[in-house]
Amino acid sequence: MDTINESESLAKYAKALSHPTRLAILKHLENQSCCCTGDLIELFPLAQSTISQHLKELKNAGLIQGELNPPKIKYCINQTHWQQAQVLFLQFFS
C-alpha cells in the first residue's frame, strides 16, 4: 500500500472511531463473536435508529461486517480491516 492510500485508509478509520459510542460498540464486538442491533440497544441507552447509524458508519469504514439473518442483521468485526487499522495507527504513532 502506498503512502497516499495508507493515509486515506487511516483517515477513514479515524473518522469511524471518532465517536465514543462507536468505540464502545467495537469494544463490545471485540469481546463477542457477533451480535445483533437488538443486543446493542439493550446495552446502550440509545434509540435503535442511533445505534443503526453508528453501525452504518463502522460498516462503511470496513471495521465491521453484517450478515443478514432475517429478520435481523448479525454484526461482527471485520478482522482484516481491524488488523489493518491497528497496523496503520501503530505506524502513525511510532
Rank of each mutant, 00 (worst) to 15 (best):
L29R: 06
P20W: 00
T21H: 07
C76A: 13
F44M: 13
H19N: 15
C76M: 10
K12W: 02
L40Q: 06
Q84H: 05
H19I: 13
K15E: 14
S52D: 10
E42Q: 10
C34Y: 01
Q83Y: 02
K15M: 14
C76Y: 00
T50W: 02
F93Q: 06
T3N: 12
A61S: 15
F44K: 10
P71K: 00
A47Q: 14
I64T: 12
F92Y: 02
S9F: 01
K15H: 11
L10V: 15
Q83P: 11
L90F: 03
N5E: 08
D39E: 07
E8F: 01
M1G: 08
V87G: 08
F44L: 15
L55N: 10
A11G: 15
E57L: 14
A85K: 06
Q48H: 02
N60A: 11
E6R: 05
Q91G: 12
N31T: 10
A24P: 12
S7E: 11
Q91F: 01
D39N: 08
Q86K: 15
I25E: 04
A61W: 05
A11Y: 04
L40N: 07
Y13H: 04
E30H: 07
L88H: 02
P71M: 00
H19M: 12
I51R: 00
G38W: 03
F89E: 04
A61N: 13
G62Q: 09
A16L: 10
E57R: 06
Q65H: 02
Q79P: 12
C36N: 05
H81S: 07
I73S: 01
N5M: 07
L26W: 01
Q83H: 09
P71H: 00
I77L: 13
M1D: 04
C35E: 05
H54Y: 06
E8C: 08
K12M: 14
L90M: 13
A11V: 15
I25P: 09
S94H: 04
S94P: 07
